[in-house]
Design a protein around this nucleic acid. Structure first.
Lengths: 220, 220
DNA sequence: AGGTCAAAGTGAACGGTGTTCACAAAATGA
DNA sequence: TCATTTTGTGAACACCGTTCACTTTGACCT
């Protein structure tokens, strides 16, 4: 185990692998999974289609790498926002709005990260596997935020942390998906009382935190 | 225009068309758009693949019919719920929860109804085209509900109707998509403070209406 | 240096897809 | 009965992901 520096062979391999990923990323960002084909990547990097299988075991495998790395970037950005020193309420809103802003910067990535996950692999090892995903980690920062809000007295104390976090995640996810699928979603800018897309995102985030915040006398 | 009754030729045509759609529907519900192929439909109804093109101009055309008719059924169910005579607050919650219940009964349909809409057709005639869609109509019942809530004094009066409706739609849509993509989404049932999927849907709907309801003194 | 051996890269093929087109069969209308 | 339109077909085209036997390459060891 003395070879901590990488050999030229490995470097070359990593370079080719990187070229494949770069080409794939470029096509994927513009045209989504539909427009991405092994043969097209091969063309773009001047290799034969079969060569790609020396680096990735399948197209799904390759695309999974793209998705994970995208979610990693999204996670990083949300972390940046949430670590800022700011009043909790503003931070919560900014965190949610930031999530959908990053998400819709690469609509194809965001959508693909959620589609095509259905019913495969082994079932039992769910919890642990999910936490090791960037998606899982992104969810856990949300959980932390909700937890902070409850313990800090900003949110209603009777709320269950993890269920609330999941509900919030669903609401945010919904807006991101809407915009990803219908690129001009709110489409309200030129109407009476119209909003730009950015304004609408803030509006949505505001409604979400409002649903969690304490209110004076609503004793059930 | 005296031929209001249909000729046997047309009836035969409709019967074949129906058989195609039935076969497609069956496969689509079980395996989604991925498992559906023209050749497979052709096999199932004992026709040649090319024959299908005498009834539908493309696979997308065929699938669009499936999607629209699914959204029609969804729309019908939501209408049923919303027309019930019930206190507004309960009706609003039930309407939202009903939407996601129907949506996740056919996850493939619901997901497909939103994916693959990006950037085609002519751009200008947006508004009118959308209103003629079952998706558009489903949105308009939501708008009506929000409008009723505001005018009835249940919701905060400063809320803008259409933006609020869109935000609510996004939140509901988000939960539906989550469950459609991650079939055991809340996955909370066996945890402390766990909820079944049905309970979670109600919880989510409750949070959404709470974000709209009047609260005593939150003067900005 | 020469020889060995694993890795990298290739071309051709397999089975699959949506779609088209010239053609045959059948139903329609006169 | 004949002409015309509609319905159905089989073969092909161009693409797809993937595999496999094969050659080329490059690194390592004597």
């Amino acid at each position: 185990m003395q070879d901590s520096e990488i050999s030229p062979a490995e470097r070359r391999r990593l370079r080719v692998r990187g070229a494949i990923l770069d080409a794939a990323e470029k096509v994927f960002a513009e045209e989504g999974e539909a427009g991405l084909s092994i043969r097209r990547i091969a063309d773009e990097i001047d290799y034969s289609p079969a060569a790609i299988y020396k680096y990735f075991s399948s197209k799904d495998d390759l695309v999974d790498v793209l998705k994970e790395s995208f979610f990693g970037r999204l996670l990083g950005t949300v972390h940046e926002i949430i670590d800022r020193r700011e009043p909790f309420s503003a931070r919560a809103r900014r965190c949610m709005a930031g999530y959908v802003r990053i998400a819709i910067e690469k609509p194809h990535h965001y959508v693909a990260a959620f589609t095509g996950v259905r019913a495969d692999d082994e079932a039992p090892s769910d919890a642990q596997a999910f936490d090791d995903t960037n998606k899982g980690r992104a969810f856990s920062v949300l959980t932390d935020m909700v937890s902070e809000g409850i313990e800090g007295g900003h949110f209603r104390p009777e709320l269950d942390t993890v269920n609330t976090a999941k509900s919030v995640w669903a609401s945010i996810h919904g807006l991101a998906m809407m915009i990803a699928h219908l690129p001009d979603f709110p489409a309200t800018a030129s109407m009476p009382g119209g909003m730009s897309q950015a304004e609408f995102i803030d509006f949505h985030a505001d409604l979400i935190v409002r649903s969690l915040e304490k209110q004076s006398g609503v004793a059930a």
